[in-house]
Design a protein around this nucleic acid. Structure first.
Length: 743
DNA sequence: GGGAACCTAT
């Protein structure tokens, strides 16, 4: 687009103004200037520099001293695709006596900027400096700022003012209030505003529908949509975006398809956002095919369309297709990278996620943002890749990024899962703002490291800080009780959940409780609890019971739990393995081989044990009996040395932890010594310095024999070993483990 | 004179 240089545009004679005297000039005939040719140029600008040229011209002609014209300049500076709030503020500051309209413009500009707080400050300034009181235009902007900040108290104050100045029935204001309350997590208050609106318009309905969707109540959103129909309010494109979003959240493919045809039948104007919402609905409802068909037909696509397709493919594990979309995107912004990285991380492919992160750093097409780092930290946590995780922590500091609650949570989680509880605590204490997720992550960290009492103490501190615990918090606190055998405390928390905190116990909480009771040997009470459950016991519940049966060697109950578990999850090899372990412990070798045959017939294989250890930023993985490592020879030599040294102090292998039935004793012993965690320990001993702890992550639970070996090695070799298994941390030092052998 | 509501990635 060719922008004429405003300085060279000569104004028509009739529009030229006398040389202005800013103090004396008063321009009331606004309409006269609304169509001024200089103003129409403002809309054509594509950079701040051009705005400044127009600004200069306006100063020269005196047009700048017309409040309407100056406000147009502020709006353009603040709300264009190339926003510059600083410049908008500068323009504002040059206006000698801003009128209400101008104040509103600036408040509006900040409300939708990255710094909505400034909106509120400008508002306070206005109360001091302007003779005018805020009007019906001011409040929607102020309420929007409060929504962005999620400042419930501030917004409520505005609500009060609105009523006081008799604007309480302005539909624009009330609609913003619906959005505001919902954004602050107060759906109920939002709904109260909605039902009390005297004359609802389509935006009122849209605001409420969207509020329900985003507040996690898609069912209610769809009901409202139907009520809207019965009240003959015609939905528009934005309504349908909300409705499609609700279908996506519910994974309701049938209704989603119906909505698609509804939109076509009622000729609801197509828009890019609507098409994107439709794409999202199809991918979330499990039909990437329908999404792809629509995608190919779309006349215009934006980054959201591409990202939605990418996520669609990635979530169903079609990584090649996802990668194809990624490569075909016109420009890979950070959201696209994030989508791919987080898809890998969430599907249990953390290594792939980290490879992509490295690629991102090399590509330089986009810069990692908070979302990237959250996903990457989570991948580090899964792998126990502490070097990279720590590097990201440094990166965050170097970039001067502020730790938001998401990032804080991820950092704490990473340090905990990599075994550095001290660093996690440091991060935890260093941040001022702690939301429920930050607290919960720290409680979980203490729990997995066996500091049950500290976890409970932190839970109390959380109450003092007035942060309300949620379902996740309770899962973590019950976990803490289970790890250290705090039965009485566990019972109390479980009973208080609903009564005191209003959090309904879910399946997970029942599973934790069964685990607590079962581990402590209270198998009967655990069974009673299962029988009393208000919902169907999920696999996790039976798994907990089965685990308890393994510890307390209850063959009969184990068989029952296992059959329930396998009915729910036919592919759960863990269940077979646990039952087989019970049989092996009880010496019922015929049943062990029977189970093995059954597993073969069903086509199930024992998930191979895999341990990983990070050395100098590289993650090394070991499978059972792995020979593939470049240093395999050295590792096995070290292992032989360890066995010999252990035997001198009277170590006897504990063979009950073998799934397979092996006839000859020494073969059995060897198989034990091929366990992946032992290989990782041997590798750790030869490849890390004496002062460094050995950090290992195992995909399954550590077996009893490996546990005793690790204890002995920690003493014999004077080395700390941190082993994270599927369930918790084991911190071996001087011949002891932090779990106190309760696991 | 202008204002409210919508899609992806945590």
């Amino acid at each position: 687009m060719a922008i004429p240089n405003p300085c060279l545009v000569s104004l028509p004679r009739s529009h030229s103004l006398p040389t202005p005297n800013p103090n004396s000039i008063t321009l009331n005939n606004d309409r006269y200037f609304a169509n001024h040719p200089t103003l129409s140029l403002i809309d054509q600008c594509s950079e701040t520099k051009q705005l400044k040229q127009i600004h200069a011209q306006m100063l020269r002609t005196g047009l700048f001293f017309d409040p309407f014209s100056a406000s147009r300049l502020i709006t353009a500076a603040a709300l264009s695709p190339f926003p510059s709030l600083d410049y908008a503020q500068q323009v504002f500051d040059q206006i000698p006596h801003p009128n209400l309209y101008t104040w509103n413009t600036l408040i509006r500009a900040y409300a939708s900027s990255s710094n909505p707080h400034q909106s509120l400050l400008i508002f306070l300034r206005m109360l001091h400096q302007s003779p005018d009181f805020p009007d019906k235009f001011t409040f929607p902007f102020l309420i929007k700022a409060a929504s962005e900040l999620e400042e419930l108290f501030t917004g409520k104050a505005f609500h009060g003012m609105v009523i006081k100045v008799l604007l309480g029935s302005d539909v624009f204001i009330l609609n913003s209030l619906i959005h505001f309350y919902a954004k602050c997590g107060e759906l109920g208050l939002g709904y109260r505003v909605f039902v009390n609106i005297p004359r609802r318009d389509v935006v009122s309905w849209n605001s409420m529908i969207t509020a329900f969707v985003q507040g996690g109540c898609p069912e209610e959103a769809l009901e409202l949509f139907q009520e809207m129909e019965t009240q003959n309010v015609k939905p528009n494109g934005i309504t349908m975006v909300g409705v499609l979003s609700a279908c996506a959240k519910k994974s309701d493919f049938e209704f989603g398809r119906w909505v698609h045809s509804y939109i076509e039948r009622n000729r609801i104007g197509e828009s890019l956002t609507l098409s994107n919402a439709m794409l999202d609905m199809y991918t979330k409802c499990g039909s990437v095919e329908d999404a792809k068909r629509l995608f190919d037909k779309m006349p215009e696509k934006d980054i959201v369309s591409w990202t939605t397709m990418l996520v669609g493919y990635a979530k169903i594990g079609e990584y090649d297709a996802a990668q194809g979309i990624f490569d075909a995107m016109p420009n890979q912004d950070i959201a696209a990278w994030n989508a791919l990285i987080s898809a890998y991380e969430q599907c249990g492919k953390p290594k792939e996620a980290l490879e992509l992160f490295h690629e991102l750093q090399l590509s330089k097409t986009a810069k990692p943002d908070e979302v990237t780092l959250v996903s990457t930290l989570s991948a580090c946590a899964q792998l126990g890749a502490m070097d990279l995780g720590g590097w990201i922590h440094v990166y965050i500091k170097k970039q001067g990024m502020k730790l938001n609650c998401h990032l804080t949570t991820s950092l704490i989680d990473m340090y905990c899962k990599c075994g550095d509880l001290q660093k996690a605590l440091m991060v935890f204490h260093s941040v001022e703002r702690k939301d429920v997720f930050v607290w919960s992550a720290m409680i979980a960290g203490l729990a997995m490291h066996g500091h049950g009492k500290d976890a409970i103490a932190l839970f109390s501190k959380m109450q003092e800080d007035k942060v309300k615990p949620n379902a996740v918090t309770f899962t973590n606190i019950l976990c803490a009780c289970s790890h250290v055998g705090l039965v009485e405390e566990g019972r109390t928390f479980f009973n208080q959940m609903e009564l005191v905190y209003g959090v309904l116990p879910g399946v997970k909480h029942y599973a934790c409780m069964v685990d607590i009771l079962g581990r402590a040997g209270l198998l009967e009470e655990a069974v009673e609890l299962i029988e009393k459950m208000p919902m169907a016991p999920a696999a996790s519940v039976w798994g907990a019971l089965l685990g308890a049966c393994t510890i307390h060697e209850n063959v009969v109950l184990a068989e029952q739990a296992c059959s329930q578990l396998i009915e729910l999850e036919p592919g759960n090899h863990g269940a077979y393995v646990l039952l087989s372990n019970i049989y092996a412990k009880a010496g019922k070798w015929d049943r062990v081989s029977g189970l093995r045959k059954l597993m073969r017939d069903v086509g199930l294989k024992k998930e191979p044990g895999c341990s990983s250890i990070e050395v100098d930023g590289i993650v090394h993985e070991f499978l059972v009996g792995d020979n593939s490592h470049p240093s395999a020879k050295k590792i096995y030599a070290k292992l032989d040395e360890i066995v010999a040294r252990l035997e001198t102090i009277g170590y006897v292998p504990n063979k009950s932890h073998l799934l397979q039935l092996v006839e000859e004793e020494d073969v059995k012993e060897q198989a034990l010594f091929l366990h992946s965690e032992k290989l990782a320990i041997a590798f750790g001993l030869i490849s890390t310095g004496q002062s460094q702890p050995i950090r290992i992550v195992k995909n399954l639970r550590v077996c009893g024999d490996c546990h005793s070996v690790a204890k002995l090695v920690s003493k014999l070799y004077d080395r700390e070993i941190l082993l994270r298994d599927r369930y918790r941390f084991h911190h071996f030092r001087e011949g002891h483990c932090s779990c106190m052998d309760y696991w």
